[in-house]
């Protein structure tokens, strides 16, 4: 049966270490339906980025069992680029520098790959510049090498430019709010809200701070500890975490 949504089912993931495979994700269950905003919060090292990278297909992570379906299509076993073309987007915690590849060329190539055809030349340049402007990035960024020499905040804003232009069905944002100044946080949040506004996109937001959740209202909040979801609730859960921390779940794991 085909059902719409990003459906993560009993996902187990290991990384290769010198002493053999090390399990990081230990049975993640999570479903993001179109139109929903989910937030994931959890202590450092609990496996949030591992989840994000595993969904996107990073070669460092081995999915040992479980499944990830995007609108019914199994993503496990697909190449990284095929997952993106299926409609998945990952805004990375640490966006990568690509020397000698201009932002403009990168965006056009990505858009062409995702849509299966090149965007119309004239309208596209305007769109790119408008998208950069909305993220308060100067036109000049289009001709710079991807992320090269960008400040931490500029890299994050550049991820949202891509989110805007590629308009994927489902987006995972890994700590996009970290390292943003107060104004940039608002600008980025507005960008994300524009993306979800039509109501048919799914969003998974990984964050450490409730501040961004004041701008981007989550429908669900998941607490992530030791490689799986230990608690779920609505946006009030995030606020109570602010007071209590993760202590009670971390203790339970130990």
């Amino acid at each position: 049966m085909e059902s719409r949504g990003l459906e993560i089912e009993d996902l187990h993931v290991s990384v290769e270490t010198e002493t053999g495979p090390k399990p990081i994700l230990k049975g993640v269950d999570l479903v993001v339906r179109p139109g929903e905003v989910h937030a994931i919060m959890g202590p450092n090292g609990s496996g949030k980025s591992t989840l994000a990278y595993s969904l996107a297909g990073h070669p460092k992570y081995t999915i040992t069992s479980g499944s990830v379906r995007l609108d019914g299509q199994e993503l496990v076993g697909l190449s990284v680029d095929a997952r993106a073309r299926a409609g998945l987007f990952l805004a990375m915690q640490y966006p990568v520098e690509v020397q000698g590849v201009s932002v403009a060329n990168f965006l056009r190539t990505a858009k062409t790959a995702i849509d299966g055809q090149a965007p119309p030349l004239r309208g596209w340049v305007k769109k790119v510049n408008a998208s950069l402007a909305q993220m308060q990035l100067d036109d000049e960024f289009a001709s710079r090498s991807v992320n090269e020499g960008f400040s931490g905040g500029e890299k994050k804003r550049n991820e949202i430019v891509q989110l805007d232009l590629l308009n994927p069905k489902y987006a995972v944002l890994d700590e996009t709010d970290s390292g943003l100044d107060i104004d940039a946080l608002r600008v980025v949040s507005e960008g994300v809200n524009r993306y979800t506004a039509p109501g048919d996109r799914g969003l998974l937001l990984i964050t450490h701070y409730t501040r961004i959740l004041r701008y981007i209202k989550p429908d669900f909040v998941h607490v992530f500890v030791d490689g799986h979801v230990v608690a779920e609730g609505d946006s009030t859960l995030a606020e109570s975490l602010e007071e209590t921390g993760y202590e009670k779940w971390v203790k339970a794991v130990e």
């Binding site: 990284v80 680029d81 993106a84 990568v96 000698g100 590849v101 990168f106 190539t109 990505a110 090498s145």
Partner: peptide
């Protein structure tokens, strides 16, 4: 590998990602 992953995560195929990286290497 991180560069290739980043490019591929935007839907760009392996071959095209390698093209971009090699062209980028020579561009300066």
């Amino acid at each position: 590998d991180e560069q290739l992953f980043y490019l591929k995560s935007r839907g760009i195929t392996e071959t095209e990602a390698r093209h971009l990286v090699v062209r980028g290497f020579f561009s300066a």
